[in-house]
Amino acid sequence: MVHVTRDRTIVVYYLAAALVWGASFLFIKVGLDEGLSPAQVVLARLALGAVALLVAMLVLRRRWPRGARTWGHLAVLGVILCVVPFLLFSWAGQHVTSGLASILNATTPLMTAAWAAALLPTERLVARQRVGLLVGILGVVVVVAPWTWLAGGVSASVPAVLACLGATASYGIGTTYLRRFVTPLGLPPESVAAGQIGAGALLVLAASPFVVPASALGTLEVSWPLVGAMVALGALGTGAAYVWFNRIVDAWGAQRASTVTYLTPLVGVVLGALVLGEQVHWYEPVGGVLVVLGVVVAQRGKRTPVAAAAPGEALGARTA
């Protein structure tokens, strides 16, 4: 009976993580539409995520990282797994739909595999992984729909698409750095997440006087949709969902847990259409299916199971 109850709890965590991470791009869009700048979205996201993980650290009684070298590595992760991708996705959210951003975010495991193969001698790509990467690239091309340019139709903003892919590339580089320099330290995953997100929040806070004009704060109207979106994006998506995902990995293993990657684009597209009224072109879900198929093929081609990216979130056991 205890085993059945635990399995049900893990399923709830799994579905909650898929829902929150899939909705992250909706929350970003709401924040931008309500008057926040991309930098303000990132600051709110990291600050609230850091608070949520601080609470988790206290409740779970996890030990904090120690030593200047360890915190130096966590600061690097805070930049390449948090600040850079979050800023790129927030900026891109001004120019592409939340559904399209969620589809492009699904390339994170492919980027992770590619960068790990390039930077880690033990992670060379096998033939199946190369096929998966090619299928994923084809999916991105379909999503961008270059044939619409010739017809003079509406297509995705190329700079915004490149920004989204730059964000997932940053996740891939950050994951590789994490595995090379931080994982060997043996820290609890919650400690790594709290350290890197806390460091990222402090960096953005320190830079905010230069990137967020004081006049922007004076004209900002705080609304319930804005507050709700930022709390959900930060406290849940960048905080609590990491703890959920960690428990899924403990119960199911990294490979099975990583399948949450396949659900988040679906959640993102559906919520964007239902909540924001975003138009979905036929080639976007088709391209999304190809991206996910590429991820499936690439993951099955791994010689040893490793954690796939926790979708869209720059969190410790990255994976992600």
Rank of each mutant, 00 (worst) to 15 (best):
T97L: 01
W224Y: 08
A160P: 07
H95T: 05
A17L: 11
V83W: 03
I80F: 07
S102V: 11
V227D: 02
T304F: 12
Q40R: 11
A114I: 09
L46A: 00
T319S: 11
T9Y: 13
G234K: 02
L26H: 06
G316T: 12
V280H: 03
L43R: 00
G253N: 09
A241W: 02
T107I: 14
G218D: 11
E221Y: 04
G99I: 02
V2T: 10
Q129Y: 06
T264M: 14
W21N: 07
G166D: 05
V30L: 00
A298Q: 02
L110T: 09
G287W: 04
V182D: 06
T5I: 13
A117G: 12
W244I: 06
A113T: 15
P209V: 06
V231R: 00
A307Y: 11
G166N: 08
A16H: 06
A160K: 04
G200C: 01
G186D: 07
A16D: 09
Q40E: 11
W91H: 09
R69L: 11
V243N: 08
F86L: 13
R63M: 00
M57T: 06
L315F: 13
R256A: 12
L110F: 10
V131D: 10
P159I: 08
V83R: 00
E284D: 11
Q196D: 04
A167C: 15
V222F: 03
I197D: 00
Y13H: 14
P38W: 00
V292G: 04
V59S: 01
S24W: 00
Q94A: 15
S191R: 02
A16Y: 07
L187C: 01
S215G: 07
T97C: 03
L32M: 09
L236T: 00
P305E: 07
R61D: 10
V2C: 08
R62S: 10
I248N: 04
E284M: 08
V83I: 12
A309F: 06
F245C: 10
A23Q: 05
N246R: 15
R300Y: 14
P225E: 00
V141S: 09
G152E: 07
G195R: 04
